Simulated assay, not measured.
Amino acid sequence: MALKQRLTDANHRLQALTVRGALALPEGVQRRLAGKPVIRDGQTLATDTQLALRLQRLAREVGAETLPIPEGRLAILRHSSITGGRQPIGAVRSLPMGNLKGRLYVPSGQVETPGPTLLFLHGGGWIYGDLDSHDAACRFLAERSGVRVLAVDYRLAPEDPFPAAYDDAVAAYRWLVANAESVGADRDRLAVGGDSAGGCLAATTAIEAAREGLPLAFQLLIYPGTDHTATGGSRAMFAEGFYLTSDFMDLATANYVPEGFDPRDPRLSPLYADLPKGLAPAYLVTAGFDPLRDEGEAYARKLAEAGATVELKRFPDQIHGFFNIVGMGRTSRAANAEIAAKLRAALA
Rank of each mutant, 00 (worst) to 15 (best):
L343R: 11
T253Y: 02
G90C: 12
A280R: 11
V111E: 07
S196L: 04
G123F: 07
G146Y: 08
K101H: 12
G194P: 03
D167E: 12
A91V: 04
A337D: 03
P215T: 08
T331E: 10
L221P: 00
L271H: 03
L67F: 15
P263A: 15
L216Q: 01
F242M: 08
P114L: 09
R40A: 08
G233W: 08
R301I: 06
S81K: 15
L14R: 14
L25V: 02
V92H: 04
E61D: 14
T44I: 12
R31F: 15
F218K: 15
T226V: 14
L251P: 00
T226H: 03
V257C: 10
G329R: 09
C200F: 08
K302L: 04
E181Y: 11
G321N: 10
L284K: 00
L77P: 01
T205M: 05
V62Y: 05
H12M: 04
R330M: 13
D160F: 13
P116C: 09
L51H: 04
D294P: 02
N324W: 08
Y105N: 02
R57G: 14
L251W: 00
G198P: 02
K36D: 00
E61W: 15
K277T: 01
Y272T: 14
R211C: 11
S246K: 13
P316T: 12
L275E: 01
G296T: 15
D186K: 15
R86L: 13
N99C: 12
A64G: 05
R54L: 04
T231K: 05
T66G: 07
Q15P: 08
A172G: 08
G85H: 07
A280W: 07
I89H: 09
L25D: 02
N255S: 11
P26D: 04
A185D: 03
L58C: 15
P270N: 10
A34K: 15
A151R: 00
C138M: 10
S80N: 12
G129H: 12
A206E: 00
K313E: 14
Y272R: 14
A335I: 09
A210K: 12
L190D: 01
N179I: 02
K277W: 05
A304F: 10
A164N: 07
F140T: 04
G296M: 14
R330P: 11
G124W: 04
P68A: 13
K342R: 11
R330G: 13
R344V: 05
G194K: 06
F242Y: 06
T309Q: 13
C138S: 05
R54M: 05
A16M: 10
P281N: 11
L221R: 01
A180R: 06
D48V: 03
Q87G: 09
V170G: 05
D48E: 05
R301C: 12
L292E: 01
W126Y: 07
Y243M: 08
S234Q: 02
L221F: 03
G63P: 05
A230Q: 03
